[in-house]
Write a protein that binds this DNA or RNA. Structure first.
Lengths: 342, 342
DNA sequence: AACATTTTTTAAAACGATTTGGTAGATTTC
DNA sequence: GAAATCTACCAAATCGTTTTAAAAAATGTT
């Protein structure tokens, strides 16, 4: 059913019907109500593409999904969806070639200039991120989930990774640990750098030398968690504690520790970062996992909210949000063992 | 840059330019080439919303995401993205109210009638799924990922859950197990029913009575896996084997078994269904997990492909694809223990 | 060289909404 | 009671493409 047809059935002009439905003031309450009721009854719904063309708004927020199928991603999106429910704005997920950086840039370019979306969310930025430069150059609204160090003013939301990891590491030092391994995220991403900094600062504060042989950077998978921790545990003296970037990594560490006949929480302490997944909870692991915690879903919801504000006209340089991360101590952390020779 | 402007810069009419770019035959090879080159050079790109309005195509496939943030989801979408890369079709993720079934139906209705997408993919259908009835009624293209028992002809892709679980259960029986517990998916979903059937048929084939106290239906989370298996293990005689619906469930079972001082693969055998996640692999669990395996990512890629075929005019009733599931035996399955009293 | 045919190009009509700039008629103001 | 203001509605322009129908140019045929 088209507007014209619908309007004539009501004995009104398309103008009035359009205004009635989009809540303009210049239409009497009586007609507005009638129009609304009839729209439901007759099932009239404006053609979204016509609306988009004429208003110039796309009614969608773009997200670019890497090929690696991050498990965080679904939670983040689910949070976005939660906030966007009822807003008549959807989430457009763009396949990424993911072959190289040039491709990714041209993908952003295409996505933005084609008018498919009103704003995009940039994930896991690097300190000097090309995507941010591009989007800023195009004058396109965007929100960065994470932080970068570029000069261009832009909206961002992030968690305080540095302080979270500093506190986690400090806590382990308080417990007497001196050889603390760190399995961090991918090289070059700002969040990894921030976590590195938190880790190193905590060590330095207490005069513990930094040992590069105790640090790894990679994707968050249980297998890599297992491999790195396994190889760290082969060192002598071996680490007595681990700081891990994700729950999956922690699963790998647990396995590695067990496979060496050691006990988590006694021989080896573990703190991991927990993005709060409904299907895998730190509390229920055995032993329960001490964690730095921040809800990915909440971040997604808030991100959607901030994008809405951005589109509503709030200046980007005003939108900076840094979330504090909880440190929750459970059974996987304990005093350093008296002696720790392998 | 608009078409009109771009065309006049080339000294051509909008018509010719449009045809040249969309590969119509009625334009000389020479002009076509020139147009293509200039388009790149001057950065002309058709306004997608105008194209959509006039062609009536949305250039997007819709997916409705439940609020529960299923971890399978990201993998499936990632697979879709892989296939859709380069097709200029994106994935539209719609937030779902998820409050009740009526809401979900009206959401599908809205999504479809608003012209935002060209087709939708329906996940985890029930035997008599309202969504299928609705979409069929609207004459809208859709692909069901999973199966239903409705009369309406429709396109679907599914894995052979029944046979997979029958084989898994049979194998456990071959190993001498008699009390085999089953932690299945949510009640009412066809895939759960199929798995139930496979399980029961395997038992019946070998004259083992079905015991409802050994079966659970719920979401796939490690916590629920733990709780159900824990309570099953408290029974006397206790089960000596588990068939589980997901990797997360299996993690929970492993924990429960360990927490009872039992050993997976020796005291208790476990087979789970593995959707193949890059971040959590059955092979790397300790002990490595025997699994029925089928790649969710591959399903996503193929689904996108089938939707493309559907949109290309292939009749829906012709698109039925049933994938065989591998059964991969690893260390988590072994002969039933001689005596198994708790 | 004239006509028929094919190839290339174009003007103008969609597509389905929003929005600008009005116009009647009712109400208020002086 | 005329002028000014307000209220409720509407006609027509607009958004940026694709596509239909037709004209112009090029080619082939006799």
């Amino acid at each position: 059913m088209k507007l014209k047809e619908f309007a004539s059935q009501l004995g009104l002009s398309p103008t009035t019907v359009s205004r009635a439905l989009s809540g303009y003031p210049e239409v009497s309450e009586k007609t507005r109500k009638r129009v609304a009721e009839e729209a439901v009854r007759l099932g009239y719904r404006p053609n979204i593409n016509a609306v988009r063309l004429v208003t110039g708004r796309a009614g969608a927020i773009g997200v670019i999904m890497g090929r690696t199928g991050e498990f965080h991603f679904a939670e983040f999106m689910s949070g976005m969806a939660e906030r966007l429910d009822g807003e008549d704005i959807d989430i457009l997920v763009s396949p990424t070639a993911d072959r190289d950086a040039t491709d990714e840039i041209s993908l952003y370019n295409r996505l933005v200039t084609s008018g498919r979306v009103d704003a995009v969310i940039v994930h896991s930025p690097k300190p000097n991120d090309e995507r941010i430069a591009l989007l800023h150059g195009l004058g396109f609204p965007f929100l960065v989930h994470g932080r970068s160090e570029t000069d261009v003013p832009h909206a961002w939301i992030d968690i305080d990774n540095e302080s979270a990891i500093r506190r986690a590491t400090s806590h382990l030092i308080d417990l007497g640990h001196r050889r603390i391994a760190m399995i961090n995220g991918r090289h070059g991403r700002t969040f990894s750098l921030h976590r590195d900094k938190g880790y190193r600062d905590a060590l330095q504060e207490r005069g513990i030398p930094f040992d590069p042989r105790l640090v790894a950077h990679d994707h968050f998978t249980d297998e890599l968690g297992f491999r790195y921790s396994r190889s760290f545990l082969e060192q002598s003296p071996r680490p007595t504690a681990f700081v891990a970037g994700s729950m999956m990594t922690a699963l790998g560490i647990y396995r590695a520790v067990r496979s060496r006949g050691l006990v988590v929480g006694k021989d080896v302490s573990v703190i991991a970062h927990d993005d709060v997944f409904p299907y895998l909870t730190a509390e229920n692991m055995v032993p329960s996992l001490s964690a730095t915690r921040s809800s990915m879903r909440a971040a997604g919801a808030r991100s959607a909210d901030l994008v809405l504000q951005l589109l509503g006209g709030r200046p980007a340089e005003e939108i900076h949000e840094l979330w504090t991360v909880e440190l929750i101590l459970r059974e996987s952390t304990g005093p350093a063992p008296a002696e720790a020779q392998s």
